[in-house]
Amino acid sequence: MSNIVGYACIVIGLVFDIFGCIGLIRLPDVYNRLQATTKCVTLGTCSILIGTLCIKGFTGAGTKAFLCSIFLILTAPVAAHALARGAHISGVKLWGSSVCDKYHQDKEHKQK
């Protein structure tokens, strides 16, 4: 039973991983790509790790998988935030038909 649940989790995780990678290819600029990969790939990988926990049971390997998934959930958004900030500071423009860029406006305002 727990094997079946674990395999189901792994399949869901793989599907979300693939969606995230398609997003990485299809979306137009860095920030949108970052959105797709942070959400889909993080949750997909966490789902794979939870599947591993279900299959292995509460043994040494299972607890390690659980810790690893918690660690990923905590750190992946921080890495994404740092990358987005770095990209914006290094001067990557938003996609052409974006609506607004308050961050850019405020930075210019501060420099004046």
């Binding site: 990485l24 790509r33 990969t37 790939v41 997909g44 990988t45 990923l72 994404a80 990358l83």
Partner: peptide, 13 residues
């Protein structure tokens, strides 16, 4: 950089 970060997370899985 984003692609490298994504690769890193995928390798964990």
């Amino acid at each position: 950089a984003v692609a490298v970060d994504t690769l890193g997370i995928l390798i964990v899985g």
